[in-house]
């Protein structure tokens, strides 16, 4: 880690608990993340693993039934501890976020142009004419044709892909330094998915913007990200450069995940679904949470949580079986 530059975002021991009618749910349970300027991090895991909650917790967008602890340092300042007013100045200005469903994330009764302009109004000194000019520029930038005419359009008048582009344009309005993207392509057709990913990549490069991309699709991560963190049961179980993690996983869960994917990183291996279900998060977990589903599990896995340890340069994993994965050495 020492060769990496100073991180702009550093999440330490992030925990989110939800008070529900059936008791407390630990949706995020000790997550650590670090992001350098311009870095692209993929955050992957099954649904319910806490990826989206982690993103929303960083910007404090969770509902009042959530309790968040830990730190999320943005250029040294803890986002989780600062007053709402200062956080509001950072939201959209330095850290922007896009959502999975543009149809529900965009206000259905407000024209797209106004939804861009209000962001500009909050974060820039532009006058109305300037905001309009900039809004057209932004729609151009994300590849929406005849941008000037589309400003007056409402979300339902856009196609799915165009809506997602519009949402990206809104998020980019104030030229943020970090984009949190919550499954931005999941709701889209495969061909459009690809266009949107390419767009996000191009924009992050052109604007020097860092990005956290939450997805359950390993293919998307392989295509777009430099680094990846794998989440399971509210924890990050492995993190490292995408090419390393996908070819030589350090955690048994990453390994299983890759094998379950039709075009996973591991070449031509037979497709193997992961047996069992993720653990319930409304009770305390002992040991490694993946143990009951793990082919490599051994005695201590269920009793003692493995420490987060380096397995290769820049790659860390919390797995007792890291060294056995490559040799396919399954306990008898």
């Amino acid at each position: 880690m020492t060769e990496r530059p100073q991180p702009i975002l550093e999440v330490r021991d992030l925990r989110v608990r939800f008070a529900t009618s059936r008791g407390e749910v630990r949706a995020v349970d000790g997550v650590n993340l670090a992001l350098a300027p311009g870095d692209t991090l993929g955050l992957v895991g099954e649904s319910g693993s806490g990826k989206s909650v982690t993103l929303r917790a960083i910007l404090r967008l969770l509902r009042s039934n959530a309790t968040t602890t830990g730190e999320a340092r943005w250029r040294g300042q803890d986002l989780l501890a600062m007053p709402e007013k200062r956080l509001r100045a950072l939201r959209g200005r330095e850290i922007a976020m896009i959502f999975q469903e543009p149809m529900s994330a965009l206000n259905p009764v407000i024209p797209i142009g106004v939804q861009i302009a209000e962001s500009l109004q909050a974060h820039t000194a532009l006058d109305a004419a300037g905001r309009r000019r900039r809004a057209i520029e932004l729609l151009d930038l994300v590849g929406i044709p005849s941008a000037a005419q589309r400003l007056a359009g409402y979300p339902h008048e856009f196609s799915g892909g165009m809506r997602q582009r519009a949402m990206i344009a809104i998020a980019l309005a104030a030229e943020p330094k970090l984009l949190l993207a919550d499954e931005p392509t999941t709701a889209l057709d495969v061909t459009i998915q690809d266009q949107i990913l390419k767009l996000l990549l191009r924009l992050s490069r052109e604007l020097g913007m860092a990005m956290v991309l939450v997805t359950h699709d390993l293919g998307v991560v392989a295509e777009t990200c430099e680094r990846v963190s794998v989440m399971y049961a509210g924890r990050v179980v492995e993190t490292g450069p995408v090419d390393r993690v996908f070819t030589a996983p350090g955690h048994a869960y990453t390994d299983a995940l890759l094998r379950s994917m039709p075009h996973g990183g591991v070449a031509r291996a037979p497709l193997r679904p992961i047996p069992g279900l993720p653990p319930r998060l409304d009770r305390p977990l002992q040991g490694c949470p993946f143990t009951p589903r793990c082919a490599y599990a051994e005695g201590r896995c269920g009793a003692e949580a493995p420490p987060f340890a380096p397995v290769a340069p820049g790659q860390e994993a919390a797995c007792w079986a890291s060294d056995r994965l490559a040799r396919r050495e399954v306990p008898a």
């Binding site: 967008l61 509902r63 959209g92 469903e101 965009l106 206000n107 407000i110 909050a122 949402m167 809104i170």
Partner: peptide, 30 residues
């Protein structure tokens, strides 16, 4: 208030007043 577009409006850094008058009031009044 529970709609995702309000979350997105918050993520954009809009003030509570703008969110309430522009996003919440308008939709609820319809």
């Amino acid at each position: 208030l529970n709609a995702e577009f309000v979350d997105f409006a918050r993520a954009k850094g809009l003030s509570r007043r703008v969110i309430l008058t522009r996003h919440v009031l308008r939709n609820a009044l319809i």
